[in-house]
Write a protein that binds this DNA or RNA. Structure first.
Lengths: 328, 328
DNA sequence: TTGAAAGCGCTAACAA
DNA sequence: TTGTTAGCGCTTTCAA
């Protein structure tokens, strides 16, 4: 690695001057600048970011903590965060936490030691207790786990209402809801939206609410059990699209037809929902926008730590596909 | 951030001594060690990795370059690389290159400036010309783009033979092949495997080989066109599972039945193939193992740069599901 | 067994 | 307009 000193020597100037042209800061005469640039070019000099980081106490790195990149919801989120990071000159670090508080804490530690400039976190387990130890900006994304943080999410409750309403409009008579993990804030919000619409129906019972943990296999098992016990169910609002795919498989195994025997609507709007047969009606979140907005917000906070915290809530949209259809 | 100096002062020793207990290097009397550890604990001291990196010229970071994390093949790969990185104390950096040589080069540059310790690269566009400029170990993964590098891949050719054989065994009479992008080494290998099996068949024609670019939409369009022109095709070997999902959709739109009218087999073994209807027969690669082996190999090379380069080729496995069935 | 001090490569006062 | 130098926080010789 060629250093700034070598560049300076070759150009016949001091390292300070080289630093000045590098950072376009302070006065440098055109002539000198020319010489320095020539030297940089000749030596193929690339500044050492680690040294810079040490001096500045900043690393130009941003980390995203997600439960598991193998859940197809997260790649899209990760992608958008990375894109924004890059466009602002930040390096993107991806961390899978497996919903484990230990892993989350371990990452928080490790990342701080690396002087990351900011964090975007999707978590259901962290709390203000943990985040207050961190002295870099944090944005919570998709889920709200610490109200002191800026938060980017979609309107889950409204989305769930949309979903339940849709099933009602197409004349489903008994609508069940498969939820995500209990501690996730969006699980609760989606459940509330569902309740807003159905809790006063005469058929309503909490027996129609079961957990699928946002997991395909778990949802599939839960749904098979539920439908066997409650054959009257003809509408299913599943808390995310991954579970929607599981629902489709469950119902196939029960030798029932979607949407003939039962209509299904998911949540998220990931592309998986377009590859199933039938394709999955869903409430789509603007996933890419959510990720990019979170990244932009974070960078704003990095640049000005005193900026007030914000909560950004994106609207959602019903996308009708083949898994729901008018009954009777 | 509390520094080593403060720890030293509180313990009444020099920073060198603190460093010794931190790194468990050199002699420290039990008594002194005790004092230092107490001080570290009291101050909640965490060593600054950036300073360490600057001194050592190493960052304990490993980067993975993939075309696009939104392609479901890559999350699994990324996941396994990250897991191994973590277990060896490395931080994992994910980079999407969009198959763009400019982005790849930009990342190579940026990562070097950050003193990354090693790279794992999935690429079809980089060459030895580019990688020779890099002075950290590199492993090529999934595709071979520079024979000077250690390489981890699966036996694509054999896998393709398995696929084509399978279609033959179930009595498909005309078997087409949808390929990946031209410049990807595994596209070529899979095509060769297909040719090994079918090139001497009397029905064979290169018209039955069309590109789908490993892309669902492109594959779908290409397949619709192909089947319209060649209704005699009753077996389809698609170069990856993502295109397999596209094939299923294409055939659905043509109002044909899988596997009744046409059998389809994919490649990769990603979980997407289990969520389609019908589920997708495929040649499965040990994706997680490929990623973890690549990471292990890389770490070996980081620890000993003189270690000879290796090529690891994993066997593949035919997984029969619903999209293929015996004909006649 | 411990400490002093140089230095990793860079930036930014401060001086000239 | 440019140079000298301290120092970011750490590790590691070298000396004591």
């Amino acid at each position: 690695m060629v250093t700034i000193r070598e560049v300076a020597k070759r150009a016949g100037v001091s390292v300070a001057t080289v630093s000045r042209v590098l950072n376009k800061k302070g006065y440098v005469s055109p002539k000198t600048r020319e010489k320095v640039e020539q030297s940089i070019h000749d030596l193929k000099y690339k500044p050492n970011d680690v040294a810079r980081s040490l001096f500045k106490g900043k690393s130009k790195m941003i980390a995203l903590l997600v439960p598991d990149i193998m859940n197809p919801f997260f790649p899209e989120l990760a992608r958008s965060v990375e894109d924004i990071c890059n466009s602002y000159g930040y390096t993107f670090v991806l961390c899978n936490t497996d919903h484990s508080i230990e892993k989350e804490l371990a990452y928080l530690n490790a990342l701080q030691q690396k002087s990351v400039d900011g964090l975007i976190i999707v978590s259901s387990t962290l709390t203000g207790e943990h985040t207050k130890e961190i002295n870099v900006p944090i944005i919570s994304l998709d889920r709200t786990f610490d109200t002191n943080l800026s938060n980017v999410k979609s309107n889950n409750r409204q989305g769930a209402r949309l979903a339940a309403e849709h099933l009602k409009v197409i004349d489903c008579k008994v609508i069940a809801h498969i939820t995500g993990p209990e501690n996730a804030s969006n699980t609760e919000e989606r459940k509330q939206g569902y309740l807003d619409v159905v809790k006063d129906e005469e058929w309503f019972s909490t027996d129609y609410i079961v957990s699928g943990d946002y997991n395909m296999q778990k949802a599939k098992d839960a749904i098979k059990k539920l439908l066997l016990e409650h054959p009257e169910i003809d509408g299913l609002f599943v808390g995310n699209d991954v579970m929607g795919a599981g629902a489709l498989k469950a119902i196939e195994e029960l030798e029932m037809q979607v949407p003939h025997d039962i209509s299904i609507i998911g949540f998220d709007g990931i592309s998986l929902g377009e590859t199933t047969t039938p394709t999955l009606t869903t409430v789509a979140q603007p996933i890419y926008k959510m990720g990019s907005r979170a990244a932009e917000l974070l960078i704003e906070q990095i640049n000005d730590p005193d900026i007030p915290k914000k909560t950004v809530e994106f609207p959602v949209e019903l996308i009708e596909r083949q898994s729901t259809r008018k009954r009777r």
